[in-house]
Nucleic acid binder design. Structure first.
Lengths: 373, 373
DNA sequence: AACGCAAGTGAATCCACGG
DNA sequence: CCCGTGGATTCACTTGCGT
């Protein structure tokens, strides 16, 4: 049943099933997990179907068609059907997880609330919810919602009493400029050379996760030599990262094409030396500050007047973070451009506010907000 | 039952309950909401009890006691009890919400998954989940988890088919460096002078939300004059921000002390002028102009030729305001789509007319007609 | 070679009004 | 209520081609 074994099979007590280390098991995850011994896995990373309920197609403003996730494996008849599916795989995971093991699940608002509630119902104990902030999400094309710029991970132990789970706090803190690791992570989506593509140049899997995300999960909550299980293996990101970081993996995948691509990918991975297995320092976020934030924080009051350095133009601050120049309303940049009759303008340096010592550029407020972030 | 009315009571048809505008209703939220007329509220902001399951006291490294949320109102016997509670208030909210209204709920990982799943069960339609990233969260003292640096908001309409909800996309974009607004918001927690404190200097409410958070919610999803309901009014942040931003509020609060503090707080709020609140103009709200009008006014003559910006296609203006592309006749949009082989097309920006200084989009004619109207 | 511009793309529950 | 249609709507990043 295993697609291929990298060799190692963990010795177990007589009669117990052998453990298929570093192997992709082909088939339904519940059925495959039943073949594994109980309490044998240190960490589970699960990326289940999201049950996206898309209606009709979506086009970009340039009329090109968005390649949606419309695969059969993501279709469920109802919430009830999805909940039953969720419950089944969570129970199977629960059995194979060690008492000290933890479970990670990733999802979006389409499914994560149902998954989280079911986890609680099955007495998993949530340790954190983690937000994966995407630095480069797909935009919202119709301007009718907020850009969906994040996904959610839930990190849980088997029960409220489960102690002794792995959390590499010191290493994470050292890798985060000596600041405590937070529940919000900024990581780009998987693209470029990391994205698996077929001979036709098309993506192999519609929802391949970035290796940086899995690396942070494994570095945070597992140790070298640990066994990491991924019941929805897909393109094998979990396996690739586990191998690179000196962890063992077991993957379960229903689709033979996905599994084959994952195996080839993992075969090409070169494990890091044990001396290298420390978390990489995170790139510090470049904070972009919105003018609306300046107003929100009360640094400038709605109704306040702004002027350019030579007091030739004046504009009024509005509650939503736009400016009004006469009857024209727009961003600080747009209004600055219109005032001067210019093509563009940097509103942060163009607009000034009155202070006891004369006009000061509003950029000072931006600096203040950046300093605290 | 109302603690105090600010005066306004909306006149309703005979027999229908009067609407208690800008008032705090004292009592259980389900019972109080039943007294409101159906479909009368534009936006609901709900900050329900989080059902925190704290086990024993939490102490800082210096052994000082963390003032945790352990109030009686936050204790539920079981998930089932919490779910029943959630279902009850969500149903009450559903009844008073207008078909075009939307619901916001805030929570943490302790309760948000249960609330979100129940919302879906009651056929609320999730529009976004929003992450409130705290710039200054309470640190994690034990170093056994990630610092809990965010809370989650769910934004939902009454049903999948509910259209016409308010989303002030253009204003949000203008206030955000001309970039579309994202699902992750960075806002500090409520502290300093904004935090309500009693005579003893202790905080009045354990989970007072920052006004900046409510401001962003109301500016995003409501209009001046809208009715905003908060069924768990607490310290009255929703009411204070609603009053400042020219929205009406209704609050329901069970605790008389909270309600009294909220009322005093709201009384001190000075509303902003309407010129700082008027909705930023959106293109989709601009009056429609028929292309036939352009021809009628003689801005373009029948028989005149139009071309796209790169002069790949050409069409002829007809007297009735249609275009002809060879033998095909249709609207400027339809013909533009056909010319390109596209699914759809905005003819106003696609088609151009010859001028002494080169091609100019026919949208200029539309703007001219709008300007004179 | 370096640079610039065009084209492509990503887990998406993505329109409103009038007849 | 369904259907037709006007017409509004995108950000960060990668790849590839042409200069």
């Amino acid at each position: 049943m295993a697609l291929r074994s990298n060799g190692a099979v963990r010795a177990t007590t007589a009669g117990a099933p052998a453990f298929p280390l570093d192997t992709i098991l082909i088939g339904d995850c519940v059925a495959q997990l039943e073949k594994l011994p109980a309490a044998s896995v240190d960490l589970v990373f699960a990326d289940p179907p999201y049950n996206l309920q898309l209606r009709g197609d979506l086009r970009r403003p340039d009329d090109s068609l968005v390649d949606a996730v419309d695969d059969a494996w993501d279709q469920f008849e109802s919430f009830q059907a999805y909940d039953a599916f969720t419950r089944a795989w969570l129970l199977a995971v629960r059995r194979v997880l060690k008492p000290t093991g933890t479970l990670w699940v990733i999802g979006s608002y389409h499914n994560i609330f149902r998954v989280g509630a079911t986890m609680q119902d099955l007495s998993f104990w949530i340790l954190n919810d983690i937000v994966w902030r995407k630095s480069n999400p797909m935009p919202n094309f119709r301007g009718r919602r907020f850009t969906n710029a994040h996904e959610t991970l839930i990190w849980a132990s088997k029960s409220a009493d489960a102690k002794g789970y792995t959390f590499n706090y010191e290493a994470l803190k050292a890798g985060n400029e000596d600041l405590q690791p937070r529940s919000d992570w900024l990581i780009p989506i998987c693209s470029g050379g990391e994205r698996l593509k077929g001979d036709d140049g098309r993506k192999i899997h519609p929802t391949q996760k970035p290796e940086a995300l899995l690396a942070r999960v494994l570095l945070a909550a597992s140790k070298p030599g640990d066994v990491v299980l991924d019941p929805f293996f897909g393109s094998g990101t979990t396996g690739a990262v586990a191998k690179r970081l000196g962890r063992h993996f077991v993957g379960v995948e229903r689709d033979r094409d996905y599994a084959a691509a994952a195996q080839a990918r993992i075969d090409a991975v070169v494990p890091l030396g044990s001396d290298m297995l420390s978390p990489a320092p995170a790139k510090r976020d470049a904070p972009r500050v919105a003018f609306a934030t300046v107003v929100e924080r009360g640094l400038l009051a709605p109704g306040g007047r702004l002027a350019d350095a030579r007091r030739r133009y004046e504009a009024t601050v509005r509650a939503d973070g736009t400016l009004a120049l006469g009857t024209v309303i727009g961003s600080i940049h747009r209004i600055g451009a219109i005032a001067q009759g210019a093509e563009s303008c940097n509103g942060w340096t163009f607009w000034h506010t009155e202070t006891p010592v004369g006009l000061a550029p509003i950029d000072a407020f931006r600096e203040a907000i950046r300093a605290e972030a």
